[in-house]
Design a protein around this nucleic acid. Structure first.
Lengths: 373, 373
DNA sequence: AATAGCAGTCGAAGTTTGGGAGTGCTAATT
DNA sequence: AATTAGCACTCCCAAACTTCGACTGCTATT
């Protein structure tokens, strides 16, 4: 056994690293060379493994909490481990079944699907579940409707192609009559199908110029509608559930200040929302470049947000048809079961995509088809 | 100084108890007799105070974590303290201003008001904010509307008197035409104004018997509507925000198991929701008996839920007009600043009630009034 | 190149210790 | 009778110390 093939050496180094990360995740303890020697099935003595470990440490994959302790993965170590994992494990079929049953018999609104999804993610991961809702701006509209509520009040309702229902009350400066509203609705919906909000805006603007029918009301409505759509759709698009679960794993945090930082961040939502938006954007760009990547993982300080120092984020996108429209995932302690989380998230991405299919595939033409009985 | 008036003795005993609770809340430490003697301004020696303390302990208001430690309040001690506090402190006007500004310029839906309120409660309390939404069953309806979504699909929309908007998609077994829907909506709304869901049910049922117009569709719709309303309105009526904040105060909990219990409970929501429902019911009963009580506090084990052993709940009701329709409050560590929390909750109850006033006061008659310009 | 063996490091967990914070009791005081 | 000072006693807590053993890195050996 003279002269070791460098390839072989490299190979077993990887194996050691993987085993260390894996085992640390399971035990939350520093991993010693002897544990490797005995349980990892490498057929090497602890001494040899020690030298491998110290190489790995020199390369920045591992650290010792102190001399004479075992090794713990760095962010970089986790990163290697996660990259290696890519798409390996499948979800246990029992768990699949459990999830699937939750979605069965549920022809539902986007809103409910997503909020339900974030709960499921949370409860299956014992961490936080998060879902970024599709931006309304980017979706096609299916219907706009104005419902009079008496007096000057009306309720505006907006249904998007993907099944999201938005509604907000409006204070008009006139009291619309039933028949006026009906006409207005008719007019609006004649020009809306499948168009994006921007397009609808333009149409409304053009109609305002031509100044045909019901000028005052149209103007009123257009004005108010545009105003409402401008604002009001920021961090509210984030479904975030189960944050308490993340914080409860106190052993994974250093001091109390760290926990408080994290709590603040989870409470305010804005920073997290921004981070996810940005991630999603990047993902879109990459998808456009043909670089299809399923589940992505963001480990500890890779986020550059100090509050997330000790947690990791596992995300993927979900689609309507072949357009990626939103992001979903799990936030948990850095020492999470990545392979399970990754397959969970991957699977949930599928499930949501399938749930949304039902909305997209439907007949595209007018409202009255043949009686379906 | 011969012969002490028993009333005076009783009085200062109360004072001692209050001071102990107050100070423990501030410091989170057991309180010693010497601290009382020096800082409470009682003009008594520590020895005398000791004997008072031991009486209080015998009566179950205080305990010592161990011999030779100071005293800590029991649930009963907190209870006394809280009952005494009743309506004493007002909220700092700066804070009021801050809150008030959040509601200004916001003619909004019930849904948003409440979810916003729970966030505010959470951020102002550093605990969890919770709001129990009015039961739809008990509210009058303002509008029902069906919007066709193409094919057999329709979106049912229901607006209650208090401004809650419910909507859910329905799969019909026929494809409704525009004009049919319009007629149906007309018919529905002619019979709906101010009625409760039960009443609407009955009306629909009666109409089904008389079997006049559009029988099939009415039947269809009524069936589906009733079905939907039966289910689906349980724990979703609870807005719960900021749960992570409660858990983050690790020093207030015994072991990790306790924390996990609490986390589970906060995650599942059902138990908590039930507890709150029950509280609300009781409150209604009491209000009916003319026993008006503003803010209520539930301390630790008074809830009989082991998971809530170390937390307290501060709640009040909010109203629409003079009907109590919902509950709101704060969940935090047992060692919370009760007086601040109570005035916060009290105040928020007011704010929400005022916010809902806007919805109730409006003109009650038909949709088209004089042009209001 | 791999290993056995060994000295050395250092944390974790247990033990000991003193100090002090606090109590309850009792006898003296008003 | 109520209050207080004084004191003995309890018991936690923090610090200092010890022991143990889990690891490592190095070196000589195979």
């Amino acid at each position: 056994m003279r002269q070791l093939d460098p390839k072989v050496a490299e190979e077993r180094k990887k194996k050691v690293l993987q085993w260390v990360v894996h085992y640390h995740i399971k035990t939350s303890r520093p991993i010693a060379s002897s544990a490797l020697a005995e349980e990892a099935g490498l057929e090497l003595s602890s001494a040899t493994i020690r030298s491998i470990l110290s190489e790995l440490e020199a390369e920045g994959y591992l650290v010792q909490p102190h001399t004479s302790a075992g090794r713990v993965p760095t962010d970089r170590g986790y990163r290697y481990y996660v990259d290696y994992l890519e798409g390996v494990q499948r979800l246990a079929s029992g768990e699949k079944e459990r999830i699937e049953s939750q979605y069965r018999n549920r022809l539902d609104e986007l809103d409910r699907v997503l909020s339900h999804t974030s709960r499921l993610l949370s409860s299956a991961s014992h961490g936080a579940g998060l879902v970024l809702s599709p931006k309304v701006e980017s979706q096609g509209l299916k219907r706009i409707e104005l419902i009079g509520l008496g007096g000057n009040r009306a309720l505006a309702i907006l249904v998007t192609q993907a099944g999201k229902v938005l509604h907000w009350p409006m204070q008009l400066s006139f009291a619309p009559s039933e028949s006026r509203l009906h006409m207005l609705n008719r007019f609006l919906n004649d020009h809306v199908g499948g168009k994006s909000i921007q397009e609808v805006r333009q149409i409304l603007a053009r109609q305002l110029e031509h100044a045909e029918l019901e000028i005052r009301e149209l103007q009123q409505f257009a004005h108010a509608l545009l105003g409402e759509l401008e604002s009001a759709f920021g961090p509210e698009d984030l479904y975030l559930e189960g944050t308490a679960g993340v914080v409860a794993h106190t052993e994974d945090f250093g001091d109390a200040r760290e926990i408080h930082q994290l709590v603040r961040m989870l409470e305010e939502r804005t920073h997290l929302s921004e981070l996810l938006q940005e991630r999603f954007q990047r993902r879109l760009d990459r998808a456009r470049a043909g670089d299809e990547t399923g589940v992505e993982v963001l480990i500890g300080e890779e986020s550059h947000l100090p509050a997330l120092r000790n947690v990791s984020l596992v995300t993927t996108t979900y689609r309507v048809g072949d357009r990626h429209v939103g992001l979903l995932g799990v936030l948990g302690p850095k020492r999470m079961e990545y392979s399970r989380m990754m397959s969970l998230v991957d699977y949930m991405g599928d499930v949501v995509t399938r749930a949304l299919e039902a909305w997209d595939v439907e007949p595209q033409e007018g409202a009255s088809g043949p009686d379906g009985r």
